[in-house]
Computed example of a mutant assay.
Amino acid sequence: MPDRLRADARRNYARILAVAGEEVAAHGPNASLERIARVAGVGSATVRRHFPTRRALLEAVAKDQIEALGVRAGELLGEADSREALLTWLGEVVAYCVATGGLAAALAYDAEAVHDSACAADLMRAADPLVRRAARDGVVAQDVTVADLLTLIVGITTATERHPDPAAQAERLFRLAVAGVSPLTGQPGSVQPSAS
């Protein structure tokens, strides 16, 4: 009987996760846990047993995307232009956050527990070599961290989620952040916006 319970629990987990992915994509990070339970055909207590917090659910939903972004960071390390490699990766993180409402929430830091996000920790590990190489090459300020950049992205995507065209607005704000608000360009150590 215990083996059957474990198999049932695994099936419930997979069903909850699949439904949660659809609900978060459709309704954002505040998707109803009760609706997720109902559509998955389980009780709310079962959802909470597998995912004790909303953050745990959002991180599970974002897991595959986070892994893909980690792989992509590794691929971009092979690019000759460290600035373009970093900006390409950051642009892809922005696009993922806009396309999947829960990713920005999963990355967001809790004021009570800074850096307590598994998604953010995984992305920081993956992107750290990109940022360090760009800093070494003088195309990003020495004191910029991956955590700074992820916080900026979370802010941009959260602020634009209700915009009529969130993807275009998030991209615009990301490019503005990269360029800075000053018309001065070419400063040593500054990240310049790409022509694309």
Rank of each mutant, 00 (worst) to 15 (best):
D122V: 10
V144S: 02
V61L: 05
A105N: 06
L152W: 13
P183T: 00
L103S: 06
H50P: 04
V154D: 05
V114K: 12
R6H: 11
V154M: 10
R35Y: 09
L184N: 06
V39A: 03
V42Q: 03
G28N: 08
A62E: 01
G102I: 01
D137Y: 03
C97L: 14
P183I: 02
G189D: 00
V191E: 01
G101Y: 11
D81G: 02
G41C: 05
S194I: 06
A45I: 03
V94G: 09
L150R: 10
A105C: 08
A168M: 14
S82T: 03
L86R: 00
D110P: 15
A20E: 08
A45S: 06
P188W: 00
E112A: 15
L150T: 07
T157H: 10
R38Q: 09
F51A: 02
H163R: 06
R72T: 02
V71I: 06
R83I: 00
T53A: 04
D165C: 12
E34W: 11
V39P: 13
L176C: 12
P29N: 07
D137I: 01
Q142V: 13
G28I: 03
G74C: 01
Y109D: 14
L107W: 12
V94H: 01
R136N: 08
A106K: 02
T46G: 07
D110Y: 13
D110I: 11
R133I: 07
G102Y: 06
P52M: 02
G43F: 10
Q169I: 04
S44K: 07
R125Q: 15
R10G: 07
G74N: 03
E22R: 06
L58N: 04
